[in-house]
């Protein structure tokens, strides 16, 4: 895969070099990405058929998986040089994640779900609580903060997940099929909201999707089915 010419000369928020990953076993899938740069506030969408490694790439960027070789740097910090515990901590502080199934905790209120990273590791923070309130208001769920996820709609659930991902003011937001569980109308709204709120806060967004109708909303498309063209600016 080639370098990203569009990012050349701009301070890279996300920098990938010589990334190699292979699942164990004789038929294990292999992912290779030589170079990728993304700047603050830039939005990338990763497409490709099932099994092409989209989710694996997100997991490598999040530090959930450790690569066999290569480096992933976020604001200059080498994620691949960290041990498992440090990678978790880094992820909690600097990376926001949005999942297809929202992955909200049903026993917590909307507000507690948004503040989950603080409750479970980053510690109580008044500024974070204010930020959670602002994000909820900006995404239109300000009136739902006391409700449980089971009492709100699918679209509202994904907004809660977006607020949770952005609450820590992350450098990088990784979204895995964030609209896969939503109807087309809600999908467009939620995606716009994610990109708008993330870029407004200077976060780089990497999204994985199957939905080619939404590609136009992103700055760049990374097609894992065409390695030669991967990383090319569209």
């Amino acid at each position: 895969m080639g370098a990203d010419p569009a990012a050349a000369g701009t301070p890279a928020r996300l920098a990938i070099d010589g990334l190699r990953f292979r699942y164990p076993g004789p038929d294990g899938f292999e992912l290779a990405l030589d170079e990728l740069r993304a700047t603050a506030g830039e939005t990338l969408v990763c497409i490709g058929p099932s099994g092409s490694g989209k989710t694996t790439l997100l997991h490598l960027l999040a530090g959930i998986l450790a690569p066999a070789a290569g480096r992933v740097r976020i604001d200059g910090d080498d994620l691949t040089a960290l041990g498992p515990a440090a990678r978790r901590r880094f992820r909690l502080q600097r990376i926001g994640l949005v999942f297809q199934e929202f992955e909200l905790l049903e026993h917590l209120t909307v507000r507690e779900n948004v503040l989950l990273p603080y409750l479970m590791g980053l510690g109580r923070d008044a500024a974070a609580a204010d930020r959670a309130g602002e994000l909820a208001a900006a995404t239109g769920i300000g009136h739902l903060l006391r409700r449980r996820p089971s009492r709100i709609s699918q679209g509202e659930r994904q907004r809660v997940a977006i607020c949770r991902a952005l609450c820590t003011a992350p450098a990088l937001v990784l979204a895995d099929e964030p609209t896969g569980n939503l109807d087309p109308r809600s999908a467009g709204q939620v995606l716009d909201l994610l990109l708008e709120q993330a870029t407004a806060r200077g976060a780089t967004v990497v999204t994985v999707t199957h939905d080619h109708a939404v590609l136009g909303r992103f700055d760049r498309v990374l097609d894992l089915a065409q390695p030669a063209a991967a990383g090319a600016l569209r």
Partner: peptide, 20 residues
């Protein structure tokens, strides 16, 4: 498992999960 996996993917430490 799914809930615990979510916490892990978000970056919550195993210690915090165990404490909970």
């Amino acid at each position: 498992q799914r809930e615990l996996q979510t916490l892990e993917r978000l970056g919550v430490s195993r210690g915090a999960v165990a404490r909970s």
